[in-house]
Computed example of a mutant assay.
Amino acid sequence: MQRYTRTAMLLHWLIAVLIIGAFTLGVIMTDIPGFSPTKLKYYSWHKWAGVTVLGLAALRLLWRLAHPAPAYPVSMKTWEKAAAHHLHLLLYMLMFAVPVSGYLYTLAAGVPVVYFGVLPLPVFMDADPALKPVLKAVHYWLTMGMAALVAAHVGAALKHAIINRDGVMRRMLP
């Protein structure tokens, strides 16, 4: 059985944990009423996770271009292979689009992003009260789309592990 490289596995699982963490923080922080130190701390952590996902996604894409994914088992139907390919493509796109939309939303809100409280990220646009709600909605819906695709990805992996028992999931397990 062909497997992903150790680097691909490491990047996959790091990004997965960060995405789940950022999503969880996003849900929690937006439910905190008003403005508090805890809410501010969660927003900072959420942004740091997003910036980290963006950087790791870039590394992962470069790695994937140089190290193609292992072939699917011959037992997989053509439509399953096509669905898996398109799901992965959409997930890669969202690993970039979600953090970028969050970053743009933050800038439109007039709030700089300071990575880990130390490294100020570029501010290339002024605060824009008219654009802020649009970017907030874009970030929200891209995030919900990613959540749905992650659920489909996990569901498909479990199907291959439990029902098909074809080794597809084991390719990404350390």
Rank of each mutant, 00 (worst) to 15 (best):
V74F: 08
Y72K: 05
K77E: 14
A109S: 11
Y4V: 07
L107S: 06
L94M: 13
P33W: 00
V123C: 00
P129H: 00
A161S: 08
A147N: 05
P129R: 00
L91Y: 10
A137W: 08
A161M: 09
M172C: 09
M9R: 15
M29T: 04
K81C: 05
V98W: 05
P73Q: 07
H88A: 03
K81T: 11
V150P: 04
K81W: 04
I162Y: 07
A66P: 02
Y115D: 01
K132H: 12
S36P: 11
I20W: 10
F96C: 13
I19C: 08
F23H: 08
L65V: 06
H139C: 09
A82N: 09
M125N: 01
L158A: 13
F23A: 13
I32R: 03
T52L: 01
A130L: 11
L94Y: 09
H160W: 11
H46W: 03
L119I: 15
M29R: 14
A16G: 07
V168C: 05
A66F: 02
K159H: 13
L91H: 10
M1T: 11
L18S: 06
A16P: 00
M76V: 01
H88L: 12
G117N: 07
M144S: 02
H85F: 14
S44F: 04
A16D: 00
S44M: 11
L158T: 06
V74Q: 15
L119T: 14
L11Q: 09
V123T: 13
Y92M: 15
G155H: 09
G26I: 12
L91S: 10
L18K: 07
A157K: 05
I19S: 05
A152W: 06
A82M: 12
W141Q: 08
L135I: 03
S101V: 13
V134L: 14
L62T: 01
A22Q: 12
V27G: 00
V98A: 10
Y92N: 10
M172L: 12
G102L: 11
G167P: 11
M172F: 11
V51N: 00
F96E: 12
L142S: 04
Y103Q: 04
Q2C: 03
A84K: 04
F35P: 00
T7Q: 14
A156H: 05
H67K: 13
A97L: 15
R3M: 10
P174T: 09
D166L: 09
A66G: 12
T52D: 03
M29Y: 10
A71M: 12
R60Y: 09
